[in-house]
């Protein structure tokens, strides 16, 4: 009933991220990884890499333990097309300040890292694969849109 779930994982490669990727493979979730540690990585991905990769995410999962969520969410939420993509911020623990920060930045939700992704994945998939209608994101719409309407002379990557 809904469009395909395609997850872009944003964060620094580490064993936890590998475990999440492995769990996605096990449960048949299409996904890609983007290391967003360097400034402009997201920008470059959506302006060039996306068109090359032909992988259009319909959900983004960002590891706030290895990647500052603020610039990423700021970029996405100020873009007329990319702002539709739901972003899940996940991280260690359940500190109320972290939870508030995630929602304040415009994330869809905050997920505390589970002890085992495999244990959480059935509930995750039952919701995101079966129940949620996802946005339609077309590469040509992204590329045709000026992502920085207030910064018309910003250098493109």
């Amino acid at each position: 009933m809904t469009g395909p779930l395609a997850v872009l994982l944003v964060g620094t490669p580490n064993p936890e991220l590998q475990a999440l990727g492995k769990s996605f493979r096990k449960f048949g979730v299409s996904h890609r990884h983007l290391s967003a540690g360097e400034d402009g990585a997201m920008d470059a991905y959506f302006q060039k890499g996306l068109a090359d990769a032909l992988f259009v995410p319909t959900l983004i999962m960002l590891d706030m333990d290895t990647c500052d969520p603020e610039p990423v969410l700021s970029l996405l939420k100020h873009h007329s097309v990319l702002r539709r993509i739901p972003v899940i911020i996940y991280g260690q623990g359940n500190d109320p300040e972290r939870v508030h920060l995630a929602y304040r930045l415009g994330a869809t939700c905050y997920l505390p890292k589970p002890e085992s992704w495999d244990t959480s994945m059935p509930h995750f998939c039952s919701y995101w694969k079966k129940r949620v209608a996802l946005p339609a994101i077309k590469v040509e719409d992204i590329l045709a849109t000026n992502p920085y309407p207030n910064q018309s002379n910003r250098k493109r990557h």
Binding site: P96, Y103, L111, H123, F124, S126, Y127
Partner: peptide, 21 residues
């Protein structure tokens, strides 16, 4: 079935600004 999936995700997997405070 839908409500069960909603509750499993939003009440058991995710954290919300009010649910864990």
């Amino acid at each position: 079935s839908v409500v069960e999936d909603l509750c499993n995700f939003w009440l058991n997997i995710a954290s919300t600004p009010s649910s864990r405070i």
